[in-house]
Every structure is written in structure tokens, then in C-alpha cells.
Design a protein around this nucleic acid. Sequence first.
DNA 1: CCAATCATGGATGGTTAATATCCACGATTC
DNA 2: GAATCGTGGATATTAACCATCCATGATTGG
Lengths: 172, 172
Amino acid sequence: MKLGDGVEQAIHVTGFLAALPGGAVMSAAALAEFHGVSTSYLLKHLQALSGAGVLETVPGPQGGYRLARAPERISLLDIVLAVEGPEPAFRCKEIRQRGPGAQTVSAALLRNPCQINAAMLRAEQAWRAELRRVTIADIQGEVAAMDDGTIAARGCAFIEQHGRGLNRKDER
Amino acid sequence: MKLGDGVEQAIHVTGFLAALPGGAVMSAAALAEFHGVSTSYLLKHLQALSGAGVLETVPGPQGGYRLARAPERISLLDIVLAVEGPEPAFRCKEIRQRGPGAQTVSAALLRNPCQINAAMLRAEQAWRAELRRVTIADIQGEVAAMDDGTIAARGCAFIEQHGRGLNRKDER
DNA sequence: CCAATCATGGATGGTTAATATCCACGATTC
DNA sequence: GAATCGTGGATATTAACCATCCATGATTGG
């Protein structure tokens, strides 16, 4: 089992946007450079987040992304589902109705859902519940308390620096 | 996020072995044919399960696999970890110490673990706890109650049928 | 003791999903 | 109206997983 890299990037960026003051926006290119990740790839996840209503976008010059609602109302689950999609990790292939073993029990058993599938889904529900409990405000709050607002200040300074010429092609 | 097919096969097979009477064993080839899955592929997971101490193997003619301990003491987590490996789904890439944003906060922040990583790991702990709670006896018990022991009987008959010539090459 | 049976473990293609990139287009602001 | 920015699709590239095969060693039955 593996979770894509995009999830980590998306959470970091969302947490960072939460640290910015007021209605400040930051362009996709600036966000990518500030976090040291690929612009093109981050872009895909930013669009997923705005499509899911987590972020909102400001077009035009000096445009960019910002939070679509208060950080207290954005959970880690919102971000994970936006980036990874809503499908559960365990997909039941209905093995029980394959092979010679299936013929004997088809009548009584198949009316009920697969117990294995049910148990796996229950576990995933517990996982999601835990992610739903943690908000961007939670993790951003802890970070802000530790570095005393430095990140926000550095982010604003970074935006200033890049008033022009940030939409250049990816370098690597 | 996605869970491999091997997990489902492994759980089904383990549950089936739990339904067999006494110390009965079943060969890898018979198990695969009975469940309608590829022998070669199932073999890999059977080996993982025996390596993890979930199943035990009886070599030689009329040999095969059986449970290494009571079904009550085999959890779904045991099987999932044996097949998928022990690594967590979320691997922190330490994005916070990359890019221009990292320089300003290196001192104070990096002493503490990444809050995002901690939250994701906590969620995965909840997932594992739920899987640990469910045993092979639980799911096998529900199945057995429904079909009234038919699966066990059919399994034994299937073993009888295949006294010889089951180790032929994969067909498909 | 010999041969059939079976598990072991490594090696090897094929297939799918995730990663990363690029480009043409439309919207917005200065 | 021109520069800036997001949108969305198309496209390589890479890694993970799926599936298979083969050579080997261990064990049992005759």
C-alpha cells in the first residue's frame, strides 16, 4: 500500500497558504519554487484542490491560489480525497464466486456481502475518521507556534521578490 | 492509495484453510485452482505468509499448507503486513526542509517531527488497530454459519480428487 | 535407495498506476 | 491590448505491481 507524493505536497502547500495573511494569493509557480517541488506536477494537485472546493483561484496578473474557506474547516481528509480520489484502497474482486469452490455456496452466501470486504472497508473508515478529525488549522497552528510567524513573513517576502517573471518554464 | 490484489487472495485462502478439519493440508496448486486464481502468483503470497508465521508448510508428497496457529490468533493485520510489507502508506519526503522556505526555520522547527507526518501516521495506526481487531475466526465463523459447513466438505472432496497430477504448469 | 512430489527463491516479461512535463486555450487585470 | 495566470488535455517517463517460469533442495512413498 502506498500513498502518492502529491498528497504530501498538497498538505504542505495548503498549510502554507493558511499561514499567509488576509486574502493574499500566491501563484502556482511561486508555491512550487518556495517548496522545492516541480511546478507542473504541483499544478495538477492545485487544480484538484480548487476543483474540490478546498482552494480558490484568482486569475489574471498578481493572481494565484488561496484557501476557499477557514483553515478550521479544511480537514486532511478533504485534501487526501481531492488528490487521491474517493475510491477505497481495498477493492473486492469477489474471489468467493470464482473457481470450483464457488458453485456449492452460491445460493445462500452471495446474498450477503463479502465479510472480508466489509472488514477492510471498516478499517478504512477508521482511517478516514482520523484524518477528518485533523484540520489545517491544527497542523498550521503547531507550526506557527514553533517558528513564531517566520514562515508567513518569509512567504510574503517571497511573493514580493517574484513580482515579475515567475511563469518561466520548469528548470531541473 | 491502493491495496494489492494479493491481500484479498491471501485472506480468502487463510480463511478457507481455517475451515478445513484437524491438521489437514492443501497444496498451493490445489488452493489456487479451488479459488480460481493464478498458482504462481498465489505461491508468492503463501510463502510470505509462511515466512511471517501465519501459515506452516508440510513438504513432500501429500504436503501443502495449513494454519500455523489457531484462527482466533490470526488477525487480518497479520496477513496484510505479511503480504504488503510493514512500511506505512505515507512516506514523509521532508518537504519542509526543501526549497527557499526551509532556510528560515531550520533551527527551531526541524528539531520536532513533521506534524503532517505524525497526523498521517496516527491515522494509519487507527487503520491497523481496526484490522488487528478482526481475526480469521471472526470472518470464517460468519461464513461457516451461513453455508453450514459446505465449504469445508467441498474442500476435503477437492483434495481427494487431486491425489495426483496437480503440479502441472499454469494454464490460461 | 530411487523417484515422484512439493516448497523455495530468484529471475524475468507484461501491465497498470503514479510521476513529471509540455502546450494550446481562455480569462483577467493593468 | 498585452502580459500574467489558471485550465485542461496530451504525452513521455518512471516505479510498482501482477503474473509466470525455472533451477534447486527437501521430503516422503515404494
